[in-house]
Design a protein around this nucleic acid. Structure first.
Lengths: 337, 337
DNA sequence: CTGTTAGCGCATTCAC
DNA sequence: GTGAATGCGCTAACAG
């Protein structure tokens, strides 16, 4: 209980602490006989090195921080899983910072990377401002961005403009012209760039098809099924309702489906719905959506960080992950009224 | 970049390191004038204390470990969120250990609590064996169990036997007698007690109603929607199919719903389905289920750990969280053939 | 009130 | 090969 230290082991084995340290770290400069003595001393004392002391001495923490917004969202969980998977296979521990408020966001950005608390850092979906990036960079800890981007750092990106374009385009190709978009607040304190990008993709597809943008078809609200349902209800009971709705996420698409069900409007006969992410439940719901490589982005991000920590001082690497249109049962040509 | 140390600050401010340490730790034994000097020195040097050195000196790590199986499962994520919430409000960091293999389970149980790596530990859903408990106890780190139990530790439990009993009973009250149960493997290497408990609750309700247990109505499989779907398909295409199915989780219930849909059997007219957990999507799916306090269990677990770490050496506390039957649209009386 | 000093537990020179 | 000494950065106890 009074956990043994390296000194105890040294005494027990009748050697110096240096020697013990050497066998712990697999130094080859130890004779087999003494190594054996030390090993058995370690065993009888049930000794484990104190990680803190080790880290202090080494100047490394063997932990990497992951900063993630709303980690309970299905899409985020998938990314996290990817990161966790590569980290679990390494010697690094993962410390999780969940941010659900701007205050917490600021706090994490300012403090986590400092205090030699971590050897590396992964930031998911939260785009650093230039000022934040500058500060982050100064701390010297390797950072990789997943699902977001900044010139100063490594990043695994998803082309959300293209993804949203593709979604909208799918609707247009089906014959729709009255296409609404339900998303989060484009201007948001978290600096979620994805919201802006997907909105842009939507606008772009519209423009390209010469479909005038209608402000009353662009609804913004907090990210939740409930809120999306409310917004969908609003636009669907409009005097001139849309025949298709593209949502920022599958979660929101489900809210739209719910609103439609409540209103008795049939999907996809009377209303087409397309989401974004392709979360697991989407398949069961026959939801047409844009698939992005959620899990893969986490995997890649973790991998990239590990590499960056090893090499150091390279110029930032950027990877772009593809999106894919998954056509299922919630989209169809508009009603031929 | 060459991060300033407490010594630099002391020199800059023209004081001793002890004084700097005092102002950092808000000791009141510092005059306002010197405190001010130190503070400004800290500011100009952009100094942040090295957390590692601090921890080594203090003998505390200010981090707590959370060991969680399959953290991507919706129910688990909810619990995790509860824990994260109380930890974020404290000064403790959360380090996450996800276990998806028995090997990893063993590794976590054996090593995480040692090496003064953490000040406390929360184990979710994984029941320690007596041997493991013994070992864990010896490390001296406070531990609380969430959604599982052991006499040696604090725990936040859910009465799964009662929950499963309630679910089965609901079906029986509706008039069903041909009730199947789809769950995980009762004998599993992770030592998930919940599987056993829910199975017991099912058996108990059956017995109490004098409904003989049928082995062919008890299906076991890996925990996933897909597998549950497969099992449901199997039992539903049986020569004498059940009229109701109780599943270990909502996720599996969705698989059952999917199988029913594929087979063209109507829910709830021809088949009743009841799940367990009441995950978010359950409401949208009109799934009848047993609600357990997922988020709350995390909250309580985190809180309990914080308290235990402060008080120390109390006898283990046990809390039991309630379950609740949520009747929605997937259960009804059996068909009156 | 404040400067000085002795560890915290381990890794790493440097001599032997 | 191996033991002893030095330092990682900080806190706490001890003088003053």
């Amino acid at each position: 209980m009074a956990t043994a230290t390296i000194k105890d082991v040294a005494k027990e084995a009748g050697v110096g602490v240096g020697t013990v340290s050497r066998v712990i770290n697999n130094s080859d400069a130890v004779s087999d006989s003494t190594r054996h003595k030390v090993l058995s001393a370690i065993a009888t004392l049930d000794y484990t090195p104190n990680a803190n002391a080790r880290r202090l001495s080494l100047g490394k923490t063997m932990t990497i921080a992951v900063i993630v917004p709303f980690f309970t969202r299905p899409s985020v969980v998938e990314r996290l899983r990817g990161i966790e998977k590569v980290l679990a296979a390494s010697d690094y521990d993962l410390i999780l910072y969940n941010v659900e408020t701007v205050h917490r966001r600021r706090d994490c950005f300012q403090n986590v990377s400092r205090r030699e608390r971590v050897d590396g850092m992964i930031i998911i979906s939260l785009m650093p401002t230039d000022a934040e990036a500058e500060r982050l960079k100064q701390t010297g800890v390797p950072i990789v961005l997943v699902d977001t981007h900044h010139a100063e750092f490594d990043s695994i990106m998803i082309d959300d403009v293209a993804g949203a374009y593709r979604a909208t385009r799918h609707l247009i190709d089906l014959g729709h012209t009255k296409i609404a978009h339900i998303g989060d607040f484009v201007d948001n304190p978290f600096n979620f760039q994805q919201i802006h990008d997907r909105y842009q993709g939507y606008r772009q597809a519209l423009k390209e098809a010469n479909i005038p943008f209608r402000a009353d078809y662009h609804l913004e609200g907090e990210h939740s099924r409930r809120e999306a349902q409310r917004l969908a209800y609003e636009v669907l009971t409009n005097h001139d309702p849309p025949t298709a709705i593209f949502t920022f996420s599958d979660t929101q698409a489900i809210g739209v489906l719910e609103a439609a069900r409540g209103l008795g409007v049939h999907v996809p006969e009377q209303l087409s719905v397309i989401g974004y992410d392709d979360i697991e439940i989407a398949e069961y719901l026959h939801l047409t959506t844009i698939r992005q490589s959620l899990f893969q982005s986490g995997l890649d991000g973790g991998q990239l960080l590990l590499e960056t920590m090893a090499i150091r001082d390279q110029k930032p690497q950027e990877y772009l992950l593809p999106t894919e249109l998954i056509v299922r049962g919630t989209t169809a040509p508009p009603p031929t009224t």
